[in-house]
């Protein structure tokens, strides 16, 4: 089995115990009518690439939102680096937001269309009140280099970038605050096939260089198999199977996993 260059230490960086979540209809006192996540228990080690596999509606992206603090859990506990994540999404999250970052399927949504790439890259540091303008720019240029883009790209506008370049910028932006955990939600799904491998290789090298833990949300078994050390399969809001991706591929124990494997021929 493949071992990552940075061996995951035993203490989990992220630990979910019996987490349920859902979207309430009506007032705060009304019960959640449709729990989207039920009783999720999952432990992610520091330095690990953990896949979160599932079809649409399986709850995998909702789980990502809960871990990012964008949707409060209804019950259960989530610990990040030993500390319980606050239920509220307010000020208590400020420090955590720095340590947990996100890469979306299409990074266009994180790039301001009327500003340069440099502006969007330095935005997280400005929001967190970190550094002088010179320090922020220096950090942005260093991160551009880490994702394999020319420094000149800093002055470019988002619309002049190709899909692959935009996704590299999205990764660079997620790195700006030196996070420990990155939630990557379908990071290569929107890219052309001939560009996907470039971005997967890049994300892996960035993970190793910065010692990141990555939660890799995807419906794409071959991609998860290539990127992740372990993967959890979700179906109908529950976590149904967990193992090394190759084990899941070769010996799926649940129907949900089998369905995800079928397509990869």
């Amino acid at each position: 089995m493949h071992m990552p260059a940075i061996s995951p230490s035993e203490a989990p960086i992220l630990d979910l115990q019996n987490v349920s979540a859902g979207y309430r209809r009506g007032g705060l006192l009304s019960p959640p009518q449709h729990p989207v996540l039920r009783d999720i228990t999952l432990s992610v080690r520091r330095g690990e690439a953990m896949g979160l596999l599932g079809e649409s509606g399986s709850g995998k992206s909702t789980l990502g939102r809960v871990i990012l603090g964008l949707l409060p859990a209804l019950s259960g506990t989530i610990r990040f680096d030993g500390q319980a994540l606050p239920r509220s999404t307010g000020a208590a999250w400020r420090d955590l937001r720095r340590r947990i970052q996100v890469v979306f399927q299409d990074s266009n949504s994180t790039l301001h269309p009327a500003h340069t790439i440099l502006w969007s890259l330095t935005e997280p540091m400005r929001i967190h009140g970190l550094g002088t303008p010179e320090e922020r720019e220096a950090r942005a240029l260093a991160m551009l280099e880490d994702v394999g883009l020319e420094p000149g790209m800093a002055r470019a506008m988002p619309k002049s970038l190709s899909g692959g370049q935009r996704q590299r910028v999205g990764i660079a932006r997620a790195l700006m605050l030196s996070p420990e955990l990155i939630v990557a939600d379908e990071p290569v799904s929107a890219l052309d096939v001939s560009v996907q491998a470039q971005v997967l290789n890049l994300l892996k090298s960035v993970q190793q260089k910065h010692g990141l833990t990555i939660l890799f949300i995807s419906h794409d078994m071959p991609v998860v198999e290539a990127f992740c050390d372990r993967a959890a399969v979700m179906a109908k809001g529950e976590l149904v199977e967990i193992g090394s991706p190759l084990e899941l591929l070769r010996d799926p124990k649940t129907e949900a996993t089998r369905r995800l494997c079928v397509v990869s021929n």
């Binding site: 899909g163 052309d192 096939v193 996907q196 470039q198 290789n201 071959p222 290539a226 990127f227 190759l246």
Partner: peptide, 24 residues
């Protein structure tokens, strides 16, 4: 051929995937 080989094959690792340089 490059398109056929672009999807990761079982056992291939991210970081060492064969790539087609550039973009369409």
């Amino acid at each position: 051929r490059a398109l056929l080989n672009a999807r990761p094959q079982p056992g291939q690792r991210a970081g060492e995937l064969p790539v087609i340089p550039g973009r369409p």
